[in-house]
Design a protein around this nucleic acid. Structure first.
Lengths: 216, 216
DNA sequence: ACCTTAAACGGACCTCGGTCCGGATAGTTA
DNA sequence: TAACTATCCGGACCGAGGTCCGTTTAAGGT
């Protein structure tokens, strides 16, 4: 019965091949019909406006649909679910970041020794997060999808790559997950807003962590 | 307006003083009225039965209320929200674990050198998690409460304590958060069930992580 | 210009977590 | 035993995420 379902066009990015490092979700709006593309833009615009005016909690699927003069179903068809919409909102910033650490100048981009790139990566993530914290928190998917988000896998893969260079005798993949955990937006939120820690302290701890983990 | 609200008895555990290490949430049903205590037991029983028969997804607040012959409001009054109920279900296992690492025999309990206790702690958490994974996943609270759950704070504090001994020159609290991240049930779920990794590999990675982080 | 069809649209509808408040009751005091 | 009150009970109610399906329409072929 579940095998006979219609194609179900799979909203947005097609998860991309997970094996190779590649620049981001390839196409967000590759071959959309004219009206679909127009509505997509309207929706993102409306969502951004809602956030700017009333905070991320005001981004209700119905509210954004109404603000975009679009049906509710359209929002879900395009973005899958609420976290999909929110992640799409983060896409711009994410693209820039990806470009920076994949092809940009050192120490974030290629050219610097791996330990320095690891340091720079964490610092960059931390600094980027403080500006978008509310959005990043709300954009976190449920437990069973959290680690399947393409963006996350890319970051994780990048860290694993650098770690395999900087600490060849370690389990790079798992170590990468550990490091990712220290950059988790929810943790940042807790430490900075619920514990009142300074960003400097987090940055120092990250650098120290990278040192400890990579020195053999 | 928000200051004039009635006491709102605060469901379950009273968060306890966060500064000192102490054994778990002190009293779960300390001074409940007879009917309240009875209903609490009924609810936990009903929830456990539902899980055993239909999995954790069947634990709907309404379903458990109905199965316990109790009103829906009663469930919320007693447990606050769904994650509160689920956490209460985990309480038994958690108590045993706490006793083990707070006052039990080495290497988990006091008496062994900190590095060995760190190793043992992680292994214990990993092994315990595999059995209760579904429940632990569902029991994870929303982003803004996740790090405030008393149980979590206790574990974190314990790790921080050991780390301050094993790595005096590090930021123990933050390092503890990092280590906690590697034991996150959602991560365990992803690695074991979505990536097919073996428990042995996770355990090895944990031991290696403890080594790296503590050798100065 | 017309036809065809795959894709998109929209909003009614469902489920479920969470809130509220009038009514019932356990425990206490007289 | 009777009255009193703090606590608890229960289910109607609400909002928001997510699904469904009959209708509309863009895009390409004839």
């Amino acid at each position: 019965m579940s095998a006979a379902l219609p194609p179900l066009p799979k909203p947005e990015e097609t998860v991309g091949e997970p094996e190779l490092l590649q620049l981001g979700p390839p196409g967000d709006e590759p071959c959309l019909r004219a009206d679909a593309a127009r509505n997509r833009a309207r929706l993102l615009d409306a969502a951004a406006r809602l956030i700017a005016e009333h905070g991320v909690t005001a981004v209700t699927m119905e509210a954004v649909a109404a603000a975009a003069n679009v049906g509710k179903g359209t929002v879900f068809r395009r973005f899958g679910d609420r976290t999909g919409l929110l992640n799409a909102l983060l896409d711009h910033s994410e693209r820039k970041f990806q470009a920076a650490f994949l092809t940009g100048p050192p120490p974030l981009g290629p050219g610097a020794p791996p330990v320095e790139r690891l340091r720079a990566f964490g610092i960059a993530v931390l600094r980027r997060s403080v500006g978008e914290l509310d959005l990043q928190l709300a954009a976190e998917p449920g437990a069973d999808r959290r680690f399947l988000v393409p963006v996350r896998r890319l970051h994780q893969g990048h860290l694993a790559l650098l770690l395999r260079q900087a600490a060849p005798d370690a389990d790079g993949d798992l170590l990468a997950h550990t490091l990712m955990g220290s950059l988790n937006p929810v943790l940042i939120h807790h430490l900075t807003r619920q514990c009142g820690m300074s960003l400097e302290r987090l940055e120092a701890a990250w650098n120290d962590l990278v040192d400890r983990v990579t020195r053999g």
